[in-house]
Amino acid sequence: MAYLTLADISKNFNKNPAVEHFNLDVEKGKLVSFLGPSGCGKTTTLRMIAGFETPDSGVIELDGEDISNIPPNKRNIGMVFQSYALFPNMTVLDNICFGLRMHKMLKNQIVPKAREVLDLVRLSDTANRYPNQLSGGQQQRIALARALAIEPRVLLLDEPLSALDAEVRVVLRGEIRRIQTNLKITTIYVTHDQEEALSISDRVVVMNKAHIEQVGTPQEIYREPKTKFVATFIGTANEFHGSVCGKDSVKSAEFLIKTNNASLFADGDEVFALVRPEKIDVYSYKPENIDGNVLEGLVDTITFRGAETRLGIDIGEKVITADVPGKDVFSYGQRVWVAFDSNACQVLK
């Protein structure tokens, strides 16, 4: 049975829906991330779980108990904020002890417990400093330690890393995942960074315009997007807009794209055929004997990205993005042929 359940949650602000018919089951000990563009309702959903907002309708259950009417300070749900929100008037240690004191922990256990979580985030030596004497990354670790100290039933993180620079962000997300896995703490992680979401989550909830687009493992979300939004929001996808033509192709303005995934749709349905850049092969000659799609074009842009090179190839109707191994060399304006398998081509409404 699910540990945390959000059943048909909706929330409006001044009649504008911020979250609509949100349904989600979170298993105990898992890290689920909410991923979506700005304003899609991630924070609002998180705040409803924390108790800072009240849903207009729907039920939130934690461990079989309806928590909708429990005030935030009685929910025992930890929260880490984008702006750290450490108490400036308290030392690091006092910040961590605060929650323990509020939970009426025995006096002689408070400081040892605080020290323990401080060790967990590897910042034992900062105990007597004030928040303004710490770097952003350190402050966020302390905020994490503070939230973990009370052994919350659920840990909520709202874009905890977005105020930090790229390098710190990668290190810290690894730390968060390590601690989360060790403590087996049920966690909800809000982010608008797809790489972050894919790299640390057990499951990803992709949101758009107040509703859920898809829930799945990072692999599922990337490999089998259920909607066009997911396909284009996660990673890069080339899209061909057209109508279903027979069982195995999509007809766009200029091309007939062969695909194995059109059978779910009726003949003539308006659809998108989508191909990931890494599924595309690029040839400097016209390839023979290829059972799939071959399109001719001119190299328009070349972006070196380390292990691979990203090419923009003008095929007339549009520019196709393709990733090729770094060792393959192409030049601007070169005539090339792009090829992709009919299996590599997804069809979505």
């Binding site: 924390a50 749900i77 929100a85």
Partner: peptide, 28 residues
Amino acid sequence: VDISVLTEASQSLGGDLWNTLTKVIMPN
């Protein structure tokens, strides 16, 4: 000071109105 975030931080740690006011808000 960002009073509302501090308040929410305090609440999420179990602080009631009195403790939030006297231990977190007023000192700041």
